Computed example of a mutant assay.
Amino acid sequence: MEQNEFEVLYQTIMDRKENPQEGSYTAYLFEKGEDKILKKVGEECTEVVIASLNQTKEDLVNEMADLIYHLTVLMAQKGVSMADVEAELAKRSEKKHNLKAERKPITNY
């Protein structure tokens, strides 16, 4: 079975987590820890918003790729697999409605 780019990215990030290589940005993020990873996710979210408002499609795609990369690093840091996310997406696609009343409130932050 052929892997998609998201799976390849996730596996590469997991490999860098388990086998850090000198000079690897991914290994650097894991070395710095969760606070650094979260900071980068936040920065990239903001850059996606800015690119959406007043930059080209190419700029937006680049920023979205950065965000997906950093989200994937966060997934690896927190032990969330692609299969976990895919299962949640599959569960959501089975819903007959999309009311926000079902969402659990975020209480710990």
Rank of each mutant, 00 (worst) to 15 (best):
residue 2 E to M: 09
residue 4 N to V: 14
residue 7 E to L: 10
residue 7 E to S: 10
residue 8 V to M: 11
residue 9 L to V: 09
residue 12 T to C: 08
residue 12 T to K: 11
residue 13 I to Y: 03
residue 14 M to F: 06
residue 15 D to C: 12
residue 15 D to L: 11
residue 16 R to C: 06
residue 16 R to K: 15
residue 16 R to N: 09
residue 16 R to T: 02
residue 17 K to L: 09
residue 20 P to Y: 10
residue 20 P to G: 05
residue 21 Q to T: 14
residue 21 Q to V: 14
residue 22 E to T: 09
residue 23 G to V: 04
residue 23 G to Q: 08
residue 25 Y to Q: 03
residue 25 Y to G: 01
residue 25 Y to N: 03
residue 26 T to C: 02
residue 28 Y to F: 11
residue 28 Y to G: 01
residue 28 Y to S: 04
residue 29 L to Q: 08
residue 29 L to S: 07
residue 31 E to G: 07
residue 32 K to A: 07
residue 32 K to W: 01
residue 32 K to D: 02
residue 34 E to K: 13
residue 34 E to H: 09
residue 34 E to C: 01
residue 37 I to S: 01
residue 38 L to R: 04
residue 39 K to P: 01
residue 42 G to L: 15
residue 42 G to R: 09
residue 49 V to Y: 12
residue 51 A to M: 03
residue 52 S to Y: 11
residue 53 L to Q: 12
residue 54 N to F: 05
residue 56 T to N: 10
residue 57 K to C: 07
residue 58 E to I: 11
residue 59 D to W: 00
residue 61 V to L: 12
residue 61 V to C: 01
residue 61 V to M: 06
residue 63 E to W: 01
residue 66 D to G: 06
residue 67 L to A: 08
residue 68 I to A: 08
residue 69 Y to D: 00
residue 69 Y to W: 11
residue 70 H to Y: 14
residue 71 L to E: 01
residue 75 M to P: 00
residue 77 Q to T: 12
residue 79 G to T: 03
residue 79 G to R: 00
residue 81 S to F: 04
residue 81 S to P: 10
residue 83 A to Y: 09
residue 84 D to Q: 04
residue 85 V to H: 02
residue 86 E to Y: 06
residue 86 E to N: 13
residue 87 A to L: 11
residue 88 E to F: 03
residue 89 L to Y: 08
residue 92 R to S: 10
residue 93 S to R: 15
residue 93 S to V: 11
residue 94 E to Y: 05
residue 94 E to V: 05
residue 95 K to M: 12
residue 95 K to R: 15
residue 96 K to G: 15
residue 96 K to W: 09
residue 98 N to E: 05
residue 100 K to A: 15
